[in-house]
Design a protein around this nucleic acid. Structure first.
Length: 597
RNA sequence: GGUCCAAUAGCUCAGUUGGAUAGAGCAACAGCCUUCUAAGCUGUGGGUCGCAGGUUCGAAUCCUGCUUGGAUCACCA
């Protein structure tokens, strides 16, 4: 049994023996003792007062005496107000550390065949523009949550749904046809996604000119937007695409291929991957049959013009269109179809969508409609809704050119990391290739940590003028702590100081050392909590506290020059364990750690 | 207007089943490298937890109302 269970059991016994009363287990709160008090675990006694019928202090005192007599691990206790602080024997913590050394992947649970199966969809880019900072948050979140879920013992399948069709793609295609002069990524020396994105912008510019001209001729703004020849032409192109016109399909395939190549480069650099990629061009017709079925069952309604709707007004929402009057489907229809397909094809238990909070309403409607249609798994959809990345002057707007491009940002971070490394002279003896590797690891660590340490559901601010920090609560700070550990372990090896298998539990350990062991103790439950709440931020905060604690230990305690061999050995083993956990927890954020920096 | 989300130090953020004197980082100031990496460590200053009620032994946390900011309510995706 774990130690908290043991304490709880003894508290219940204590109340039977001292007060002859039964206290419900759920009233027992055991929390970590705060730093400013002496102790390891704290029992809050306020909820027990109606059973003990004594003052908080006396209840805590009597409970403390009982626990100390009956729980062998407890060394001493103290009472402050209604809080009973329990201090454990050093040997308890050393024994605990020794057990963790035996574990292959401490903190991680291995998924089994019958473990919960979760599909997580993230990234989901449009093929008409390059990835920007908002996509970066999406990608990092999706990848990290997948890692965390795996570590918590789930079977995880990462998928991407690429929006490769629709009017917006046709806009880029049309602009390229008109003004491209056959330009390709090779001739323009541009990444494919950038090149295609440029033509999307070009379309918008020319379209606006046309609209303005029409308005000058006295046409209303609404009509002008609909009648502009470029838009009409793009719509015609979409129709041709849907009729599988060979020339249109060929152009579409060519330009999408450019984009995918560009995306893959960015994904590679970010360290993001997928187990399966879906394309909307292959899924956009799904869902129509389900809608027809719903219509037959009377769950959905058909209007006079032939369009099909879900009436959600009784649920406090509006009516939602599912099929247009001409019978074509909308996004919602497709999502209904793909969700159904995924649950039946892969027998998944849960489907997570990593999508920005601007689509909260969409997913609310999706779950509700699926439920009305009678799908039992409708409750197992989860919209992992994350906040927008804002700039100091508000949202990113592609039209105003305030978008922070993902590739540009990465390159800038790498250059900053390089300059800092050169200033500090840390990598002077490294080859160019080694320097490049380390500098990229640091830059990515800084960016990923910066984004993931913020609670996903909150909006976050990014100021491009103040480049992301490398000091304080940052990725590089944690990476640096790791590099220090590696350096000490290396020196130990070179000096022929060998670590023993485990630690003697006879030694006396200090406060910093106990704090570190307690944080090691917290690691498994932190992973579970992060998985349950889909929050990499919990992992990030945990690692920061851990690395900070290690740096204090490192500052206060010498390791290699410690004269007591048993203590030296203990500190080496402890440092080694801290390093392993930093590495493994950073991997949950998709961040690598360098051996030196 | 309806629905949903947010508001904590000058700035960026923690604070998760309600618990002790609300914490970090950045910025400012003052210290610490002859000693395992100073991308580090230590200290000082900085708070009406948006406002007002309520529940409770106890509220940043739960409830109600209000203020402010954001998102959304398309035959867009």
């Amino acid at each position: 049994m774990n130690i908290e269970g043991k304490i709880k059991e003894n508290i219940i016994e204590a109340f039977q023996k001292i007060y002859s009363s039964e206290i419900p287990e759920k009233l027992i709160q055991i929390q970590k003792t705060r730093k400013e008090f002496i102790g390891d675990f704290t029992v809050v006694v306020f909820p027990f007062l109606r059973f003990s019928k004594k003052s908080p202090e006396l209840t805590a005192e009597q409970l403390g005496v009982y626990l100390k007599d009956n729980v062998s691990e407890i060394n001493e206790f103290n009472v402050i107000k209604g809080f009973l602080n329990l201090k454990f024997l050093d040997s308890f913590w050393i024994d605990f550390l020794n057990t963790t050394l035996l574990e292959e992947n401490y903190g991680f649970k291995q998924a089994k065949e019958d473990s919960e199966k979760i599909m997580i969809e993230y990234s989901s880019p449009n093929t008409n523009k390059p990835l920007h900072l908002g996509h970066v948050r999406n990608n990092l979140l999706g990848y990290s949550v997948a890692q965390i879920l795996k570590a918590s013992g789930k079977n995880v399948m990462k998928v991407n749904l690429v929006n490769d069709r629709g009017i917006h793609i046709c806009k880029s295609m049309l602009a390229w046809q008109k003004w491209g002069n056959g330009q390709t990524p090779e001739t323009s020396h541009l990444k494919g996604d950038k090149l295609v994105g440029n033509y999307y912008v070009k379309f918008d510019q020319e379209y606006k000119k046309q609209v303005a001209t029409l308005i000058n001729k006295g046409i209303s703004a609404d009509d002008a937007k609909k009648q502009a020849p470029l838009l009409v032409e793009a719509q015609k192109m979409l129709l041709k695409w849907e009729m599988k016109d060979a020339e249109t399909i060929a152009l579409w395939e060519k330009m999408n291929a450019w984009v995918y190549k560009g995306f893959d480069e960015t994904y590679n650099k970010l360290g993001i991957d997928f187990d399966k990629v879906y394309y909307e061009s292959e899924t956009y017709l799904l869902g129509k049959a389900i809608v027809a079925e719903g219509l037959k069952n009377g769950v959905l309604i058909k209007k006079e013009d032939g369009s099909v709707w879900a009436d959600l007004t009784k649920d406090g929402l509006d009516e939602k269109l599912l099929l247009r009057a001409d019978g074509t489907s909308v996004y919602m229809t497709q999502d209904i179809g793909t969700a159904n397909q995924r649950f039946s094809e892969f027998n998944i238990d849960k489907l997570i969508y990593v999508v920005g909070n601007e689509q909260n309403y969409h997913f609310q409607v999706l779950a509700l409609v699926l439920k009305k249609l009678g799908y039992s798994w409708a409750d197992n959809l989860f919209h992992l809704s994350y906040g927008m990345v804002e700039l100091p002057n508000g949202k990113m707007k592609s039209r105003e050119g305030t978008v922070v491009d993902a590739d540009d940002l990465l390159n800038e971070m790498i250059e900053t990391a390089r300059e800092t490394s050169e200033e500090l002279g840390k990598l002077d003896s490294y080859s160019d290739e080694e320097v490049n590797n380390v500098v990229e690891t640091i830059a990515l660590g800084a960016l990923k940590y910066f984004i993931l340490k913020v609670d996903p559901k909150k909006n976050m601010l990014f100021n491009p003028k103040e480049s992301i920090d490398f000091n304080g609560n940052t990725g590089p700070f944690i990476q640096y702590s790791y590099a220090r550990i590696k350096s000490v372990l290396n020196k130990a090896k070179n000096q022929n100081i060998k670590q023993t298998e485990n630690v003697s539990n006879k030694i006396k350990i200090n406060e910093k050392e106990i704090s570190l062991i307690k944080l090691i103790f917290d690691y498994p439950s932190t992973i579970i909590e992060a998985a349950d709440s889909y929050s990499p931020a919990l992992i990030a905060n945990y690692i920061y506290d851990f690395a900070k604690e290690f740096n204090q230990f490192y500052h206060d305690c010498t390791i290699l020059k410690e004269p007591d061999i048993n203590i030296r050995n203990f500190r080496l083993i402890l440092s080694d364990m801290v390093g392993k956990i930093i590495k493994s927890s950073m991997s949950l954020l998709g961040i690598n750690v360098p051996k030196r920096m």
